[in-house]
Design a protein around this nucleic acid. Structure first.
Length: 271
DNA sequence: CTAACTCCCTGATAGC
DNA sequence: TGCTATCAGGGAGTTA
């Protein structure tokens, strides 16, 4: 599924493919995603140009020439392609945006947790719907001191805490598990019990792992037409997520459900 | 305010 | 072989 690194890669690819292009036509085939696609039909997109595409959290944020944004989220199974109209529409392609060069931006999402919306610009220059979300994990603002301060008084498990988008954006279940394994912190620990040194370690590993994954995601997305090519290479780098045996000490990996998500951890290495 | 839950959805896989 | 049950996941929303 598209995680932050994939969202980053997709957004970079979209920036190249869409920048300067004019929207000619918008077609909705099935509107019921996380939010309805219906409003796109009457949003007056035809004739507008794409100015740029950036990533924020796991969203692709496409700036339009009238100052509004086309905001996309890929949910669990969202895929976006820019390709010829001659390729037949796939079963779960719910939205087509035809460009002035004849190519079509196609949004596919079998599980329909994705989102495509037109949003106005908010006070901070990002779309209105993205106001008030947490810091970007790769920004300088995401530091050990920040995480330590934010975790004071938070009794929830540390894994849920670092997955909280109001604190820091874009860390999903897989990255949370991999990060906590890498820095030897148990996902079950209460956030408020973390030391400042542990927060430093968590932040360092989040950044290292995300950067690594972006590097790998970037490689695979160059073959952008390949639907599932982007997942394969990252999966090989996983050390704890979905594993049975700890790659370090060979102990049996434990599973716990935190915040409704399965969490894998090594009870010997992570404390 | 936090925390703990539910819901949305399809496809892959496990079990009978 | 074909059925049903289970699970995976992000984010928003609701409840206590």
């Amino acid at each position: 599924m598209p995680e932050l690194p994939e969202a980053e890669s997709i957004s970079r690819a979209l920036d190249k493919a869409l920048k300067g292009r004019t929207i000619r036509q918008v077609e909705v085939f099935f509107p019921r995603l996380r939010t309805s696609l219906e409003p796109l039909k009457t949003a007056g997109l035809e004739g507008l140009k794409f100015v740029s595409v950036k990533r924020r959290a796991r969203y692709s944020v496409c700036e339009l020439s009238d100052g509004r944004f086309l905001v996309m989220h890929y949910g669990m199974s969202g895929v976006v392609r820019v390709e010829s109209k001659d390729i037949p529409r796939r079963k779960h392609e719910h939205l087509f945006i035809t460009l002035d060069n004849g190519l079509i931006v196609k949004f596919e999402d079998p599980r329909r947790f994705g989102m495509v919306e037109v949003q106005e610009k908010g006070p901070d220059g990002w779309p209105k719907g993205l106001q008030g979300i947490g810091v970007e994990p790769l920004d300088k603002a995401f530091s050990g001191k920040f995480l330590f301060a934010a975790s004071r008084g938070k009794k929830k498990p540390v894994k849920e805490f670092i997955m909280d988008n109001a604190v820091v954006t874009g860390i999903g279940n897989i990255y949370a598990a991999e990060t906590l394994f890498a820095c030897k912190v148990s996902p079950l620990r209460k956030a408020c019990d973390l030391s400042e040194e542990e927060c430093e370690r968590i932040v360092k590993e989040v950044k290292r792992i995300l950067k690594l994954a972006i590097k790998w995601g970037g490689t695979t997305v160059s073959d952008y037409k390949n639907v599932d090519g982007s997942e394969g290479k990252f999966v090989q780098k996983l050390r704890i997520y979905g594993k049975n045996v700890c790659p370090v000490c060979k102990a049996k990996v434990e599973k716990a459900v935190l915040g409704g998500r399965t969490s894998w951890y090594c009870p010997a290495c992570q404390c």
